[in-house]
């Protein structure tokens, strides 16, 4: 048997309002791989991501990393990044304050260097002092991406991150995100209901049926 590497979801069950939403879910992601997960809204894709990130608890099943069970590990100790459809930037912090949020154990010098580097990467150099309320939808989502990447997560989860943006911007950002993740070697699970976007971003495209059917 090949030793497990990276994240693996085994036989997961997720309930919503007393009813079973997903059952017998299996998923693994190879190092550096971007997996797109396709499915209609309300089908439980977001719940799956929330369980992997640790902000929601599954009813049963395990989530492991390199073979170590992390199902009960609190979210803040998992080093798994999560980007929502809404940017959810902290309104009381400026762009720099948002991006540096996960960089607590670094010196101020290191922190601002990392923030500058990430803002450069997402195409927003010099935006550090901007009030987040003044950002456009696309800019805000780029800042959210920079914020999630800053602490160097070992896995990035993207929950319809471009859902609120128009087609043109969506395609452009899709390519950017793909290049960014590959350059940093960060594996990702990208949830979307848009086939074109999935093909654009991901190395492997799965549907929910792929996760639950062939175990």
């Amino acid at each position: 048997m090949i030793p497990e590497e990276g994240p693996r979801v085994t036989d997961l069950r997720i309930d919503y309002d007393g009813a079973t939403l997903l059952d017998h879910v299996h998923l693994s992601v190879s190092p550096g791989e971007i997996v797109a997960l396709l499915g209609p809204s309300g089908s439980g894709k977001s719940s799956l991501l929330r369980c992997i990130a640790g902000v929601q608890a599954p009813e049963s099943g395990t989530i492991s990393w390199d073979g170590v069970d992390i199902t009960r590990t609190p979210a803040h100790l998992r080093r798994i990044g999560l980007v929502f459809q809404d940017p959810l930037l902290f309104p009381h912090r400026d762009v720099e304050g948002n991006v540096s949020f996960g960089l607590r154990d670094q010196s101020p010098g290191q922190r601002s260097a990392r923030v500058a580097q990430l803002l450069e990467l997402v195409g927003l150099p010099g935006f550090g002092q901007r009030d987040v309320a003044t950002l456009s939808g696309g800019e805000a989502q780029r800042v959210a991406l920079a914020r999630a990447l800053a602490p160097r997560p070992r896995l990035l989860l993207l929950d319809e991150p471009f859902g609120a943006l128009d087609r043109d911007l969506r395609d452009r950002l899709g390519v950017d995100v793909r290049n960014l993740l590959h350059a940093q070697g960060i594996p990702a699970v990208h949830v979307t209901h848009d086939r074109v976007e999935a093909d654009l971003v991901a190395d492997r495209v799965l549907t929910l049926a792929d996760l639950t059917g062939a175990a």
């Binding site: 640790g54 803040h76 607590r104 914020r147 999630a148 997560p153």
Partner: peptide, 13 residues
Amino acid sequence: RMRDVAATLGASP
């Protein structure tokens, strides 16, 4: 969900 974001960035509860 802001709190979730903070948690995934390594902030304790």
